[in-house]
Design a protein around this nucleic acid. Sequence first.
DNA 1: ATCATATGTTAACGATAGGTTAAATTAATT
DNA 2: AATTAATTTAACCTATCGTTAACATATGAT
Lengths: 232, 232
Amino acid sequence: MDDNKRILLVEDDPNFGIILRDFLKMNDYDVVLAKNGMEGFEKFKKHDFHICILDVMMPYKDGFTLAGEIKEINQDVPIIFLTAKSLKEDVLKGYKIGADDYLKKPFDSDVLLYKIKAILKRNKLSAILDTDEHEFKFGSFEFNSKLRHLKFKDNKYVKLSPKENMLLKMLLLHKNDLMPRELALTRIWRDDNYFTSRSMDVYIAKLRKQLEIDPNVKINNIHGEGFRLVSD
Amino acid sequence: MDDNKRILLVEDDPNFGIILRDFLKMNDYDVVLAKNGMEGFEKFKKHDFHICILDVMMPYKDGFTLAGEIKEINQDVPIIFLTAKSLKEDVLKGYKIGADDYLKKPFDSDVLLYKIKAILKRNKLSAILDTDEHEFKFGSFEFNSKLRHLKFKDNKYVKLSPKENMLLKMLLLHKNDLMPRELALTRIWRDDNYFTSRSMDVYIAKLRKQLEIDPNVKINNIHGEGFRLVSD
DNA sequence: ATCATATGTTAACGATAGGTTAAATTAATT
DNA sequence: AATTAATTTAACCTATCGTTAACATATGAT
């Protein structure tokens, strides 16, 4: 029914809070405004939110503390911190808690909108990655990442190994876009060093061999950055 | 939201400071004027500013020192220095601290306005680029700085190296305006000496070669100052 | 005009990342 | 325990990248 994304906004400055709330509402978000950490936490428990925007500096309960409590209930809600000071320790602290992004006050309202959109998009990706959605079509291939089956047109399917499978899936989640090296290494190999990196290159070669039947599908390297699977 | 951008102006000459403040106010900026470094820092801590304009030569606390303190609190506030002498060491020192631009006294007030606008626009762009799409259009080119792809009309894209990529991006953030040599050197090469400077010239030549297909796009040198990419 | 300095340009080199195959190792099955 | 599958490591090769050298030209100061 209501496909608007729901935002929890916690901001202690009432003027700024209301202005920001109205601005977000104008842009088709459903916004619940809380004016301190306590109230923010209560409202978070009552509703489901797609994203939380928290001011860092608030009396009684600061944004970091609130974020910690929120993450205890739901690890996956993306959080954007609003911060006047952008001290390095603060940024680090925020990322440890699980911040998805930072915005230094004063910020441009368009930038906030962009960041919200980017985060929601990103989150959709990782939701797919964690749950199912294991059927992919690309070029003339059909790929089932649950069964680890890769099929070209009417050929019989080929069975992929677990690592081949995860890597292909990761590439497809970033289809036509950069899949950063470091992402695959931390997510699939759970370590980022010279050897895991070379291992990954070996798997890229294996996948390329599987995909070479289809001239419209390519895995391109972006030197120093990662790989990119291109297909129509 | 609140449309007016807020400027912190720190200038020890009271006459000039007031004139400049009123001029900026007439141009729809909210200006807070401080008459020395100490006062400037206090006011910076109290309010959120979109941009700081600092006189370099002030008694007790000079503009550089103040800039350093400001950057410790908020690394991302753009800073414009006003300077009578424009010694090379001073310019370098400023860029290392994180200056966004320089203005030699006496200066044309319209130039200052133009620079303020350019900086705000640039800052907004790069904030967006941190998360979202990295797409630029100029002349008949399309440039994707995330994939490091440069495309001319319907041609196949050309791959850019990391340094080519960063340099082109920096030129585009200053499109039709001066991109100071020292800025690219401190930000991209992270060092400013004879060799890095020559290296940069080599990369300018490489970019020129890539861009020569389009007669409407040029990278011009401004002797002793830097480069300017002109288009449209 | 002269000179020092800044810039334009090309080529070559060394360093590092990536492509690929095969052998070695480890894990999974039987 | 034996066999097979999966993954890692090694080895060798190619591509890419950035720096530096070398030489040419342009610019601005004197």
